[in-house]
Every structure is written in structure tokens, then in C-alpha cells.
């Protein structure tokens, strides 16, 4: 689906933040902001919810833990019980280090995997840049103002008032 966007480029994070506040105050929906580094306070200004990815860490970590414990128990007690220095077959405490390592490994890889899926990043993906230089020194606000010419004008005016270097209209798909 193609939509129309208004893209405002800023050279300073401060002016960009002020513009985001003003836009939200005026009721203009912000599609996204593009920046060369994570600008502090922008999440709150844009009203982005805190990510729930740590939940994935918890679940994947627990999965790793259960797998490690079950696998060690299965090999040491069921599949081939072996007397090592008279230690019990189910030496649970001795299984703790491997349980810990697999909790961290699967928890960490699961989190990164979920992040890449959620952010739709994958090797070789063609980049869609809001403005030239957003990976260098440009901050770009993209408002999501569909099908109403008045909204576009409002967004353009607020961005220019707040120090945008350039404002342009563009069509694109999300």
C-alpha cells in the first residue's frame, strides 16, 4: 500500500525534538523519526511504548535452561549411566554450569533473533532512507498524514517553524 508522507530534515537533535513535540501537540500523527543515533527523550516525545523484547529473553532463557537440565539428566541417568568417582547419576549441582551457559546462549540468541524479526532487518535488505544522511548527521521526521491536504500543510508549517532545513512530500510504501 502506498501512502503520502511529509518528510522534514533537521540538522540538530534539539530542534527535531521540539518539532516532534509541536507536531504531537497539534495532533499530527508521526510515522517515524530517523536519526544517526538514539536521541534521548525521543521515545517519550513520540509516545513509543517500552519494547517487550525482554519477555522473549525470559522465555528463550527458560527454554535453554529446561533443555540443558533435561538433556543432562537424560544422558547421565537414562541413556548411559556412568559411575564417575562415585558421584550420583543425577548430579544436579554439577549440571548447573552447563544449564547457566545454555540459558544465556539461547536467551541471547533468541532476543537478537526476535529483534531482527520485529524490526524487519535481514541480510541484504535494501535500505529505505527517509533523507540522505540519516545515518550520518541528519534527523528526519516523517509524518503520516493521509489524504487530507490541510494536514500536510499543518505538518509542513510546524516543521519549518521549528527549524527544519527542508520539508518535502513523498509517496512511499511502509
Amino acid at each position: 500500500m502506498t501512502d503520502r508522507f511529509v518528510v522534514g530534515s533537521f540538522g540538530e537533535p534539539g530542534t527535531m525534538l521540539a518539532a516532534v513535540d509541536a507536531l504531537r501537540g497539534a495532533g499530527v500523527a508521526i510515522h517515524d523519526v530517523f536519526a544517526p543515533y538514539p536521541v534521548h527523550g525521543l521515545d517519550q516525545a513520540m509516545g513509543i511504548r517500552r519494547s517487550r523484547l525482554p519477555l522473549v529473553t525470559l522465555l528463550a532463557g527458560l527454554g535453554g535452561l529446561c533443555f540443558a537440565l533435561a538433556f543432562q539428566y537424560y544422558t547421565a541417568v537414562f541413556d548411559w549411566p556412568l559411575d564417575v568417582g562415585g558421584k550420583p547419576e543425577n548430579s544436579t549441582l554439577a549440571f548447573v554450569p552447563v544449564c547457566f551457559e545454555l540459558t544465556v546462549l539461547i536467551g541471547g540468541l533468541g532476543t537478537v533473533g526476535a529483534f531482527l524479526l520485529r524490526a524487519r532487518l535481514f541480510p541484504g535488505k535494501r535500505e529505505q532512507l527517509a533523507a540522505l544522511g540519516v545515518t550520518n548527521n541528519v534527523f528526519a521526521i516523517v509524518t503520516y498524514a493521509p489524504r487530507d491536504a490541510n494536514d500536510d500543510e499543518l505538518a509542513r508549517r510546524i516543521m519549518l517553524e521549528n527549524g527544519a532545513d527542508e520539508v518535502e512530500e513523498r509517496e512511499g510504501s511502509t
Binding site: 517515524d32 530517523f34 536519526a35 519494547s51 529473553t57 524490526a119 535494501r126 529505505q128
Partner: peptide
């Protein structure tokens, strides 16, 4: 670099998640 950078475009929504993932790691 296009293959390695995975289509990164500096989106704040991605940055927000990215910072959480960095903290978790």
C-alpha cells in the same frame, strides 16, 4: 555493507528496541 547492515535506516522505533536489546545482552 548492504548485506552486513541488514537494511538499517535509523528508525527511532528500531533504535528504541535496539537499545533494549543491547541492555539485555
Amino acid at each position: 555493507f548492504r548485506i552486513l547492515s541488514m537494511g538499517w535506516n535509523g528508525s527511532q522505533r528500531t533504535w528504541s528496541r535496539y537499545e533494549i536489546v543491547s541492555l539485555v545482552l
